[in-house]
């Protein structure tokens, strides 16, 4: 049976993990390889690296970083942040990333999704959607949540699936950072609409939040950052809890 995935997310700036990851036993908490290795040992199913500098000059650093991670850790990972060109995608995939995540550029140039899916296959094209609740719908925001687009998130999700995206990384801007749980309503609305996997993101605070997003909102994967970085919960704890409650997870 296909397992529900638990995915830690790491912010990367100039090739280093930022926002601090406070694991015990890490020689260097800013080294993405060290952090990836620690999460690998904890039983993470995948990793997401988001490059928050995402400048042109930074591309080379990012590709080198991906190469370094892939040389050391034999698990799937996704890289996102500022990706706008087919050549960027090619370089990152060749360097060993399993998937790339598109966001702002996909909204501005939706044909990037179809071109990338056709060239590299849907399975490696993730579209990240940052959504915020409005009166009667959720609106898509771009540029790291700074710019509203007027686009309905449900409509956009359907469109990206149609264009060939293989997965959606869905972040609730309303829940992000609150630790009050994933946005079940939003996640459910999107998973009902489309037939590709959805990673829920934003709001994880306790064990039950993970159960709810899988059992009640039909997410395929749950992403969390600070919760894992600060060891408020370990991945093992989350997975043992989910297994007890009857959710299919991979125990290592």
């Amino acid at each position: 049976m296909l397992s529900k995935r638990i995915i830690p997310c790491l912010d990367i700036k100039e090739g280093r993990v930022v926002k601090g990851v406070k694991f015990l036993g890490l020689r260097d908490a800013g080294d993405p390889v060290e952090v990836a290795r620690a999460y690998d040992q904890q039983g993470a199913d995948e990793l997401v690296f988001l490059d928050i500098t995402a400048s042109f000059e930074n591309r080379k650093t990012l590709v080198e970083l991906v190469e370094k991670i892939a040389s050391n850790i034999f698990m799937p990972f996704t890289v996102g942040g500022g990706i706008g060109e087919i050549q960027d995608i090619r370089n990152l995939l060749n360097a060993g990333a399993e998937k790339v995540s598109l966001n702002t550029q996909a909204v501005k140039f939706p044909e990037l999704i179809s071109a990338a899916a056709k060239r590299f296959g849907s399975q490696c094209i993730v579209v990240a959607i940052d959504a915020k609740k409005q009166i009667d719908h959720w609106e898509v925001f771009i540029n790291g949540g700074r710019t509203p687009t007027g686009i309905n998130a449900e409509v956009w999700a359907e469109k990206v699936a149609r264009l060939g995206a293989g997965e959606i990384l869905l972040t609730s801007m309303d829940c992000d950072g609150t630790k009050d749980g994933y946005d079940l309503e939003l996640t459910q609305a999107i998973t009902q609409k489309i037939n590709i996997p959805v990673i829920a993101s934003g709001g994880a605070g306790c064990l039950e939040d993970f159960y709810n997003v899988f059992a009640k909102a039909n997410a395929d994967a749950a992403l969390a950052a600070s919760l894992f970085h600060y060891q408020e919960l370990s991945i093992k704890q989350v997975k043992s809890y989910l297994k007890e409650r009857g959710v299919a997870v991979r125990l290592t």
Partner: peptide, 15 residues
């Protein structure tokens, strides 16, 4: 098969 309940791509850890 693109049956309604089957998400494609098949993505993740399986037996």
């Amino acid at each position: 098969s693109s049956r309604q309940d089957l998400k494609v791509p098949h993505m993740g850890w399986n037996d």
